[in-house]
Amino acid sequence: MQQNNFDGIAMNHAMNEANMDLPDLDARTKGLLGRALQSHYDDLINAPIPDRFLVLLAQLEAKETGDE
């Protein structure tokens, strides 16, 4: 998407995006979606973390210390 020809076009784009807004959803639907989103994300958050990241950070830190 070409958005940076000049500022006017970028601004028009932003305004269009706002102007075409859909109506705000009712509270019940927003609540349902919010809880589903949180469940989805919580599953990902709670997934076990592979060791590779801790190993990587430990190696990076060891390297800094070794460089002194």
Binding site: H40, Y41, L44, I45, N46, A47, I49, F53, L57
Partner: peptide, 14 residues
């Protein structure tokens, strides 16, 4: 950084 890893993974997977 370590504390943020779960969030980073979850965001990246999403």
């Amino acid at each position: 950084l370590i504390k943020e890893i779960p969030n980073l993974r979850a965001f990246a997977a999403s």
